[in-house]
Amino acid sequence: MFEIRLHSRGGQGGVTAAKLMALAAFRDGKYATAAPFYGAERRGAPIVSFIRIDDKPIKIYSQIHNPDLVVVLDPSIIDLVNVFDGLKPDGKVLINATEVPAKAAGYKVSLVDLTGIALKINLIVAGSPILNTPVIGALAKMGLFSRESASAAIKEMFSDERNYQAALMAFEELV
């Protein structure tokens, strides 16, 4: 089983990103669950979502304490929450940022400028750049699910073509 913990802020689309990840994995023929953990449902409040991907049905409903991958949609959360807590020794971290945050030193960090991508193609809703579709592109590049399933998932949930474009840009940008 592959376990992902996703950190975001309320309103950034973290919950939708988690659903998209589950859908993409599901389109790969895997079993997947996405469970947002709701605290206070306010915009801007730190939110964590748990995504599990496996070859067999997933029976676990509790939180992910030892993730294989941590995804951070908002780097400012790193100062508030220990996003690396319990990360497996060989675990990876994907951060929406242009440079590695100081606290992330020593971890296997990948960076992708999701905010920059969203702004570049004007993927903005109610004043906020949309991060949930570009992050799917980056995660496809990391091999979480196939590129085809990622694009199928995005097209299934969003009709606006820019979501797919943004994912493609993130896919290409991530090294």
Partner: peptide, 10 residues
Amino acid sequence: GFSLSHITQQ
């Protein structure tokens, strides 16, 4: 609540 109502599964 939440653990099933809000979880995404197939």
